[in-house]
């Protein structure tokens, strides 16, 4: 086989379904023996949040942001038919019915397959998220690190 191919995905969106699509493609690409990077920025960072409340020192605005955004992948809403939280319940029900994987499971699988999960540090500052609030074994970087992976990538997606 030739040299390793690369897939890079920018996860900008904070919705359950969009994040799910990103993680399914990422896991598929890893099975293709691609080197995969998911760069989480803006609302996509919420997929990396720990579910439990982590007490860190924050200003008022950051605290508010933290409260208003979903804490962890499982709490995310969906992009269509959210119906104030009823939509995600429905989608999780059909996921179970069809034996598909839930978003938290897909994230676990991604880590198992050595997919590089990167949190954008600039947007972490904007949204007031701190490293302690995000899951373990992820990397922290900015746009240059992302571009270094993306410029010789074979698949680049923005979701």
């Amino acid at each position: 086989m030739s040299e390793t191919k690369k897939t890079t995905i920018v996860l900008f969106s904070g919705e359950y379904d969009k994040a799910m699509a990103a993680y399914i493609i990422a896991n598929g690409a890893a099975a293709y023996d691609h080197e995969v990077t998911i760069f989480h920025t803006f609302w996509g960072l919420n997929a990396l949040r720990k579910e439990e409340l982590v007490s860190v020192k924050k200003g008022l605005l950051e605290k508010l942001f933290g409260k208003m955004m979903p804490r962890g992948a499982d709490k995310m809403g969906i992009s269509k038919m959210n119906f104030a939280g009823f939509g995600p319940k429905m989608i999780k029900h059909v996921i179970q019915k069809h034996n598909a994987m839930t978003l938290p499971q897909l994230i676990d699988l991604a880590q198992e397959q050595d997919i590089k999960l990167v949190a954008c540090t600039m947007t972490m500052d904007l949204l007031g998220l701190q490293q302690e609030e995000l899951i373990e074994d992820i990397e922290y970087a900015g746009v240059a690190a992302y571009l270094a992976d993306a410029q010789d990538g074979n698949v680049n997606l923005f979701i």
Partner: peptide, 13 residues
């Protein structure tokens, strides 16, 4: 069997 995309490929690999 019973597994949805992308699991069959992940398992095969």
């Amino acid at each position: 069997k019973g597994l949805a995309c992308p699991m069959p490929i992940v398992k095969t690999r």
